[in-house]
């Protein structure tokens, strides 16, 4: 990589950092100052504005794992393997945040920390699948075997989501029905200010995802570079 390209990349990175920071700040202002308090649930409902974006982000991250896994098996390019790995890690982090904020919301509203509600349960299973994915990666040595196995699991795991969804839904559900998309159309069930805040928050979190991806991918590439140099050193000495 020539130095110019590096600098350019860093500049892009900086813009993304500022944009994300600004977006998150705006979202915070929206959540705590702008948006009115919901009538039935009270102030606790404000958790929703980052609970839902976290869930969206982790789901999006797992989708990226799925796509990158397919592309990896097709192209056999280490690049896709790095993306899948990075995305799975970020997805698990945000999935954990969903699993933490969910019970904090449920405690005052449902009166119990954990209820075997459909969406909470599916999130937990999803979390387990991708933790297993990361464990699989940690268990095997670097090389094409690890990448191929992880890719297969990335595909198998994502295809499981519809099955989890329906099985858990038919099993039982208590979760508040999605208010953003109802039968009447998008956004009918919510106050416009709430919708705007949620949208802003979703946007800021999506930016955050790309920011984190950049860092994670850079980390993997640095590790690769160090490995390469070490190998070179080993053979030349």
């Amino acid at each position: 990589m020539n130095p110019d390209a590096v600098e350019e990349k860093q500049e892009e990175g900086n813009i993304l950092v500022w944009l994300t920071g600004f977006g998150l700040l705006m979202a915070m202002i929206g959540i705590f100052i702008y948006v009115p308090t919901e009538r039935t649930e009270g102030v606790i409902q404000r958790i929703m504005y980052f609970h839902v974006p976290c869930a969206w982000l982790s789901f999006f991250a797992f989708f990226v794992v799925f796509i990158c896994s397919i592309l990896f098996l097709w192209k056999k390019d280490r690049e896709w393997d790095i993306y899948a790995h990075a995305s799975a890690g970020i997805g698990v982090v945000f999935c954990s945040l969903v699993l933490i904020t969910g019970p904090i919301w449920a405690r005052p509203i449902w009166g119990a920390w954990w209820v075997w509600d459909a969406r909470l349960t599916s999130t937990l299973i999803l979390w387990l699948i991708y933790v297993a994915y990361l464990m699989l990666r940690a268990q095997s040595d670097a090389g094409s075997m690890r990448a191929r196995y992880a890719a297969v699991l990335g595909i198998v795991g994502f295809l499981n989501i519809p099955f989890i969804h329906f099985s858990v839904l038919w099993w039982r559900t208590f979760h508040p029905q999605p208010k953003v998309i109802t039968n009447e159309g998008i956004g009918k069930g919510m106050d416009p200010s709430m919708l705007a805040t949620l949208g802003l928050s979703l946007f800021a979190f999506t930016l955050l995802y790309f920011l984190l991806m950049g860092e994670r991918v850079r980390q993997e590439k640095l590790k690769d570079e160090i490995d390469r140099l070490k190998r070179e050193k080993l053979y030349s000495s």
Binding site: M135, L136, V156, N160, F163, S167
Partner: peptide
Amino acid sequence: LKTREIMLPILLYPLLVPIVI
């Protein structure tokens, strides 16, 4: 894998949840 006996259930069970239910 080195730890195949442990890893098989860890990989398999979450994916089997729908069918188990």
